[in-house]
C-alpha cells in the first residue's frame, strides 16, 4: 500500500504505520530571502517602497522598482505587494482567499424560514428574491459552479410569495 517513493515506518509511540515523502525543498537553503542591499552610491536605482534599499528587480505588473524585501516571486513573474493587494480586491481573479456564496444564502433564506410554521417565509421569501436578483451575476466561487441554486431559490421564493398572496386573497374575499 506504500505510495511511490515512500516507505512504511511504524510510529514508536502509538505503533501505527505512517509514510513520509521528503522533497528537496526540505533541504533547500537557497530559498531564504536574499540579503537587502542598501543603496550607497548616488544614482543607484532604489526601491519604490523603501528609498534606502537598492532595487533588484522591477514589478512584472506595474514596473515599479523593488528591493528583495518587496519582491514577491509569482511563478516566473515578480510582483510588488501593492499589485497583489489590488488583485485581491478585484472581482475577476483567482487570487481571492474567500468568496461569499450568495446562491446558498438565497436558497437558505427561501427554505429555512418556511420550515418554521411557514409564516416566517413572509419575510424570508422577499429577502431570497432580492439576493437572487441582486447577486445573480456575481461569481460565487473561483471554481466551476452552476446557477442552479439561484434558479431554485428564485422559484421557491416566487412560489412562497404567490402562496401568501393566495392566502391573503382567500381571507379577504372569503
Amino acid at each position: 500500500m506504500d505510495p511511490q517513493g515512500a516507505s512504511e515506518q511504524m510510529c514508536p509511540e502509538c505503533d501505527t504505520p505512517y509514510w513520509i515523502h521528503v522533497f528537496p525543498g526540505m533541504l533547500d537553503a537557497e530559498r531564504a530571502p536574499a540579503a537587502i542591499e542598501k543603496s550607497t552610491i548616488e544614482g543607484d536605482a532604489s526601491c519604490f517602497f523603501h528609498a534606502s534599499n537598492k532595487a533588484v528587480i522591477p514589478c512584472s505588473s506595474c514596473g515599479r522598482f523593488l528591493c528583495s524585501l518587496c519582491d514577491i516571486p509569482f511563478g516566473e513573474a515578480h510582483i510588488c505587494p501593492k499589485c497583489i493587494e489590488r488583485s485581491q480586491d478585484s472581482e475577476k481573479n483567482s487570487m481571492k482567499n474567500q468568496v461569499y456564496q450568495y446562491d446558498n444564502m438565497a436558497l437558505l433564506t427561501a427554505i429555512l424560514p418556511a420550515l418554521f410554521f411557514l409564516w416566517p417565509a413572509l419575510i424570508g421569501a422577499p429577502i431570497s428574491l432580492f439576493i437572487t436578483i441582486k447577486y445573480f451575476k456575481t461569481p460565487c466561487s473561483i471554481l466551476p459552479r452552476s446557477k442552479i441554486r439561484f434558479y431554485l431559490a428564485g422559484l421557491l421564493a416566487l412560489g412562497e410569495i404567490a402562496l401568501f398572496i393566495f392566502f391573503i386573497a382567500a381571507m379577504v374575499y372569503g
Binding site: 505510495p3 515512500a6 504505520p17 505512517y18 513520509i20 515523502h21 521528503v22 522533497f23 526540505m26
Partner: peptide, 13 residues
Amino acid sequence: FRDIQMISMQVTG
C-alpha cells in the same frame, strides 16, 4: 508545488 517540503500519511484508529 515549489514550496512543498514533505507529504505524510498515517493510519488512524
